[in-house]
């Protein structure tokens, strides 16, 4: 597979430009003033008079800060609860020798194949019947468990040598203490990967929040962006919209650049599961 190097670099660069261009364009447009943007019949590739006014209006004219706060609460609580739930479940599967363990595990794995779109209809009805529309409980509860992450963590827990467990037992350490003093610290890399992937998922979630909230006080950023687009700054204030889009995109891009290796390794694990 040895093509001519320059050609390879050329084509890779083209794809890189295609990937990066929308990001460049959103940042660029967000720094143009409304007047100068509207006056450009032919869009300019640089902002001649960069301004921050769009960012001010993104956070004042529409409740973007509120959407951010909601998304942050939603992300933190969902991820926190999920990590607790999956640690216990993974530990039960990996270490506790209870009857029916294997059968339960197989059934859990079978659940991994169930598409979200099939169960979301009843979940919508359930949450509506419980009166939990437009509430954080309604947003959070259905996304608290993830069978795949239980599976991932169980595999990792099983790699911790048995001897440590017996030693702890002989010392009279309780299961729960062993779990949090030995297992969790030893499997920290996996847990961190799971946390990051879940945070990304939460930050970007759109469909469920859209179904379950129609009160803007409970909108997450995705729904907020949609709301801004439909009736935010007035349909044509594109620069202000782009400022909001940049604000929504930056946190995840920063997270990605910090945890690049972990995220990519985690996602390719997700790919290998099939």
């Amino acid at each position: 597979m040895r093509f001519k190097r320059p050609i390879i670099y050329f084509f890779l660069s083209i794809w890189a430009i295609i990937v990066l261009f929308p990001f460049y364009w959103m940042v660029l447009t967000s720094f143009k003033s409304y007047a100068s943007y509207a006056g450009e019949r032919i869009p300019k590739f640089i902002a001649t008079n960069p301004t921050l006014e769009n960012y001010t209006s993104a956070f004042t004219a529409v409740p973007l800060a509120k959407y951010f706060a909601n998304t942050l609460i939603f992300t933190l609580v969902t991820t926190g609860l999920m990590v607790a739930v999956i640690i216990f479940a993974a530990y039960a599967f990996a270490r506790i020798n209870f009857r029916g363990r294997h059968l339960m595990f197989v059934m859990f794995l079978a659940l991994m194949m169930i598409p979200n779109e099939l169960v979301i209809i009843t979940n919508f009805v359930t949450i509506t019947d419980l009166g939990m529309r437009n509430s954080f409980a309604g947003l959070i509860l259905p996304s608290v468990t993830s069978v795949f992450y239980i599976y991932l963590l169980k595999e990792n827990f099983e790699q911790v040598p048995d001897e440590l467990y017996y030693a702890a037992k002989v010392d009279g350490t309780s299961d729960i203490k062993y779990l949090f003093k030995v297992m969790v610290p030893m499997c920290r890399p996996t847990i961190i990967t799971v946390i990051i992937l879940k945070v990304i998922e939460c930050w970007n979630s759109y469909v469920w929040p859209r179904l379950i909230t129609d009160d803007p006080n409970f909108f997450l950023v995705s729904n907020g962006i949609q709301e801004i687009r439909e009736n935010g700054f007035g349909r044509d204030n594109i620069p202000a919209m782009m400022a909001a889009v940049v604000a929504v995109s930056v946190p995840l891009i920063v997270l990605f650049l910090i945890f690049r290796k972990k995220i990519m390794a985690g996602v390719s694990r997700e790919g290998i599961k099939g």
Partner: peptide, 12 residues
Amino acid sequence: FFLPYVTNTLAV
């Protein structure tokens, strides 16, 4: 190349 994976679909 991985960037689109971590972006918000609605925003981009």
